[in-house]
Nucleic acid binder design. Structure first.
Lengths: 118, 118
DNA sequence: CGCTGAGATATCGCATGGCTATATATAGTG
DNA sequence: CACTATATATAGCCATGCGATATCTCAGCG
């Protein structure tokens, strides 16, 4: 029931997910991972090998910026969404909603694929 | 406004889209391409370099089966969805709806990202 | 009749990006 | 002390969408 979503399915939305988490406030990598996992009831585990390269990419594109916090024993790199990042997120959200509607229409046009309630 | 959706966004749903078109009845490659483009108002153009390898892959997985029609001058390869293909499509549709709901929740949880109507 | 554009399929090679495995280091717990 | 959780990072693999390119047929036009 609550299996994780397939990697190929999530591809293309992961950036948006991470940005949407950061939109609520600064976070460090590990906490983003946890928040996403909890918010999706375990269906988006976002492994470290995906998360960190993704954050580096977003930073290289200036959609987020980071600073280290070495004050505690655990080195943490805090990330914050930038203004271009917010704009990008907004664009992605708009595009995503249009896409979701598009797919929904396609699925409903195919026989025998109506949602369970039908 | 009606730009095509980004490749990365569509990745992971293309198989499902093609299967959902074939669910309505047998089609040949070129006609699948046209139907998808029209049904999505040009936002899913599905170029030949994507379409044909995709069809070969689906056939290798036995989700669709094909036969040539050489009766007309134009060689056409007709595709038909199989029983396993229908089952696969149904699974993908269920997963996709769950995923879409999941993303919607994430986006609505982020400040300033509510749909335009809000 | 040759040219052009649409119809129709196919494949190569590149680019993107998610994942596993691995590495490193600290903190807390039995 | 061993083990788990916290915390970040990278190399290399793998899947797949796309542009470019190649064939071949047919319809229309001058």
């Amino acid at each position: 029931m609550t299996d994780r979503f397939s990697a190929e399915l999530m591809r293309g939305s992961l950036d948006m997910m991470v940005l949407s988490v950061l939109k609520k406030g600064p976070q460090y990598g590990y906490s983003i991972q946890q928040q996403l996992r909890e918010a999706t009831r375990g269906r988006v585990p976002l492994p470290a090998g995906t998360l960190y390269p993704l954050l580096h990419r977003l930073e290289a594109e200036h959609f987020i910026k980071s600073r280290w916090d070495d004050s505690t024993g655990r080195r943490r790199k805090w990330y914050e969404i930038t203004k271009p990042g917010s704009a990008c997120l907004e664009r992605q959200a708009v595009q995503w909603r249009a896409y979701a509607d598009c797919i929904r229409d396609l699925l409903e046009a195919a026989p025998g694929l109506r949602p369970a309630t039908a």
